[in-house]
């Protein structure tokens, strides 16, 4: 399992497009928003948590189709399926590798990009915390979507259509947590719900992803 994780990380670093692309996309989204809504800094700081969450979510989405597609094309997936690892473990490792190469850099970059959007000082901690808790769920749910569309030629668009509705609860609780903290409201419920969703999808969704992958491999 560690070998698989190391290989995926190595591939992401060497082939490029792992760390870099997601972050660049995130930055572009953050830069484009003020062009869209106007340079009013009061308004920007009000919508900052939502924009940052949305940007992270979209950046995450961008690299989902690479989770399985490359291994599918070159036949590695067939071999992994016959390897002495359960497919559930492979799926989980893949999700972890995706989070490490996409989710974690986004979490780390978020406070820097938050400056661009005038995020109130009180918001930095909750925002980073919510992203840290929430982005693993995005990766795991995305892995399920990637497993669903792995055999399809034009799976990218379909993948977004399938995954985005599944992201709704995570987005709501994540952004809500940051927003409520800034406004001085009680953010504990959102925090707990967000953590609950993340734990639940990490525990349960790999079984669905593995089942889906088995169907797609045959």
């Amino acid at each position: 399992m560690i070998a698989l994780l190391m290989r995926d990380l190595k591939l992401a670093i060497r082939a490029g497009g792992g760390f870099g692309l997601g972050l660049a996309f995130f930055l572009i989204v953050v830069v484009l928003v003020p062009f869209g809504v106007g340079p009013n800094s009061g308004l920007l700081s009000k919508i900052a948590p939502g924009v940052l969450w949305l940007g992270a979510l979209l950046a995450c989405l961008l690299s989902l189709d690479r989770i399985f597609a490359l291994d599918w094309e070159d036949g590695s997936l067939d071999l992994l399926a016959t390897a002495p690892l359960p497919l559930e473990a492979i799926v989980s490792v893949k999700a972890l590798a995706h989070w490490l190469t996409t989710g974690l850099p986004l979490v780390l970059a978020a406070p820097v990009f938050a400056i661009l959007l005038n995020l109130p000082t009180a918001g930095y901690g909750p925002l980073v915390l919510s992203l840290l808790i929430g982005t693993p769920a995005l990766s795991v749910i995305g892995t399920f979507g990637a497993a669903l569309t792995v055999g399809l030629k034009r799976g990218g668009l379909l993948l977004s259509l399938l995954v985005l509705p599944l992201y709704v609860p995570t987005l709501i609780f994540g952004a809500e947590m940051a927003r409520r903290s800034i406004e001085g409201l009680n953010a504990q419920t959102s925090l707990l719900m967000l953590a609950g969703i993340t734990c639940a999808v990490i525990a349960l969704l790999p079984f669905a992803s593995a089942a889906v992958l088995r169907v797609n491999l045959r």
Partner: peptide, 12 residues
């Protein structure tokens, strides 16, 4: 997830 969204939206 649809059920979960329902509760999330209610909360929201």
């Amino acid at each position: 997830f649809a059920l979960l969204s329902r509760y999330a939206v209610n909360f929201w």
